[in-house]
Design a protein around this nucleic acid. Structure first.
Lengths: 209, 209
DNA sequence: GCGATTTATCACCGGCCGGTGACATGTCAA
DNA sequence: TTGACATGTCACCGGCCGGTGATAAATCGC
């Protein structure tokens, strides 16, 4: 929102520090204003330095986006991790995945903006960004799945995609307009309702065949 | 994509025709380029007339968007209508709703763009646009529901929102990048898979309690 | 035929954008 | 001390944007 440059003596002459400032500014701009406001000028203003440095140190916006993607790669995995009891059934596995994905996405405006970016302006650049999320989820599933397998005769990939898609759409809509299709998505109670419905769905599909 | 003005003798002096041209051009621009490319200059170029006319006849972009919203209000209702047998159970009702919403949204890039617009840049303007869709679905449900009611002890609004949200996210992702979370969303076979999964979900929740 | 009105076009403004070349200043090594 | 290099700033370019005032041309009422 505000464009006041963050405090930063303009003569720091510390490249590592400057790069970190630029990267942080880029994340803030993207998280706050979305991809529409994401540009060289905005990031430089936010970082309190000249935009030329973005070209010099990151090779332009593309390199900056890639840099964001790098430390974003581990985001989802970190978020999905927990010390809870490992799932004992496939239903529990999917249930944990859905609930944690909901919480993680809801808490991270940056990733929300990236997801919207992907929908609104698909490009190889942002595709690379979004790919990290997908592979992270895959790896998490592979790691915590153990020997768990979906029930026979069930199109698990389709169901899981449905569930994750529902969660993502609701989180994005909730952040943007506070409701979806008449369902309020603001208070924690609203989200508890969504969680309950999602859990019921998972169990209806996987637990009882 | 291309900016060549549509054939149109520049001296037609037919206000009704010109207004229709502008409105059509606006819909095309929005459907093709999304809200990012939606502006006075782009619409005027596409309509093959001067942008001043947009201000004169529609009062600027806002009025133009409202005009789009007007004839868009009946869109969903028209799409949802059909001569199929009326649903006999609540499960059938929701099943029809979900499947028809999927088909309608998939076939209409304009509405897809509006949905994305709502996520990326919420504003009273586009909210008015998107509200039409919501009320249209409400009215359709009220009209075809008859005496059907959801089973006891089921949070029907939450489940329905989940299902519609899943469909919407998958359609948007399919149009943008052709897949979601590893699930391909391009061929008709891909979508048949999604439909089957959605139907199974609906029945698991409503039919068998 | 003629003036008034409608319809449409054009030229222009300020502002922001991405991008680049020239320049200033601090740092460090020879 | 001096010269090369790293770091940072500034000024400028062309292009597109939304928005507006003046002007031309066709139509209509009289």
């Amino acid at each position: 929102m505000s464009d006041e440059p963050t405090a930063r003596d303009s003569r720091s002459r510390d490249r590592a520090r400057t790069e970190a400032d630029i990267l942080a500014a880029a994340r803030v701009v993207l998280a706050e204003d979305g991809f529409q406001g994401f540009g060289v000028n905005a990031v430089a203003r936010r970082a309190g330095c000249d935009k030329q440095l973005i070209y010099r140190y990151f090779g332009g916006l593309d390199g900056l986006v890639d840099a964001i993607g790098l430390d974003l790669a581990g985001w989802l995995e970190r978020e999905l991790l927990s010390e809870d009891a490992p799932p004992r059934t496939y239903a529990e596995l999917v249930e944990q995945l859905v609930l944690r994905f909901l919480a993680a996405l809801r808490a991270d405006p940056l990733v929300q903006r990236i997801a919207i970016w992907e929908l609104a302006a698909p490009s190889p650049l942002v595709a690379r960004l979004a790919a990290a999320r997908g592979t992270a989820m895959m790896r998490w599933v592979a790691k915590t799945r153990g020997a768990l397998t979906p029930p026979e005769g069930v199109d698990a990939p389709a169901f899981n995609a449905l569930l994750i898609a529902a969660v993502q759409q609701l989180v994005l809509a909730g952040a943007a307009v506070g409701s979806f299709s008449g369902l309020p998505l603001q208070s924690d109670a609203d989200w508890a309702r969504v969680q309950a419905a999602a859990v019921t769905l998972v169990r209806a599909v996987y637990s009882e065949g």
